[in-house]
């Protein structure tokens, strides 16, 4: 079963429907102990970093995720703010400590080109920085739907698996062991997005 973490932030219905469409056995998890029964986890999120991490901590999901993802090594897919909150620190309206799974800061995007507005809203191409099973069967530069003002900035870029160009290199996808996350919304990115979610369901299965 794939469990979608419901901590009260974001459009879970779309994520649920997308996974349901590709044939996953999917449940929305509202109580942290129930995360134990999930084989794979989706961490969605829309809104502000501070609210997100505060809610994860208050609800007990932060501790449950630490157990399931870091100790038990279950595959997890973070989407948008669900990716950002995996960083060490968020620098959105102050300094906030994140889950700390990626040695990175969440910083505001600052495109070189003054014509480019923040937030970035719309479909942008990604470039692969690394080969990854989750990109299997996708074309060379697929387009995905982004909507964000902040992105994950690394001191050491070894965890970046894809970037996108928005007047600067913007982190589009990251991976570390069993943790995969995208800044874009696969559940809103039509065929390529559904393909990525499908690849996530199969990730690690045939190894």
């Amino acid at each position: 079963m794939v469990g979608i973490v419901d901590y009260g932030m974001g459009n879970l219905l779309s994520v649920f429907n997308a996974l349901d469409w590709i044939g996953a056995e999917v449940e929305i998890i509202t109580s942290p102990p129930d995360l134990e029964s999930a084989e794979r986890i989706i961490l969605p999120g829309v809104g502000a970093f501070r609210d997100c991490i505060a809610t994860l901590n208050e609800t007990g999901f932060a501790a449950a995720l630490q157990r399931e993802v870091i100790e038990k090594k279950k595959p997890i897919f973070g989407i948008c703010l669900g990716m950002q909150v995996m960083a060490k620190r968020g620098l959105e309206g102050g300094k906030w400590e994140g889950l700390g799974w990626f040695d990175a800061d969440i910083v505001r995007i600052q495109p070189d080109d003054p014509q480019l507005k923040v937030p970035q809203v719309g479909w942008n191409q990604i470039q692969y920085d690394q080969q990854h099973p989750i990109f299997q069967e996708l074309p060379q530069n697929p387009e995905f739907y982004f909507v964000h003002s902040y992105h994950m900035a690394f001191r050491q870029p070894q965890d970046i698996v894809a970037t996108t160009d928005y007047g600067m290199a913007v982190t589009a996808a990251v991976c570390r062991e069993n943790i995969f996350a995208t800044q874009f919304h696969p559940e809103k990115s039509q065929d390529y997005g559904l393909k990525i979610l499908e690849n996530f369901l199969n990730w690690g299965r045939d190894q």
């Binding site: 219905l13 909507v147 039509q190 559904l194």
Partner: peptide, 11 residues
């Protein structure tokens, strides 16, 4: 909306 969201995967 719920009907659309079931099978339309774009914003």
């Amino acid at each position: 909306l719920r009907q659309v969201a079931e099978e339309v995967f774009m914003p």
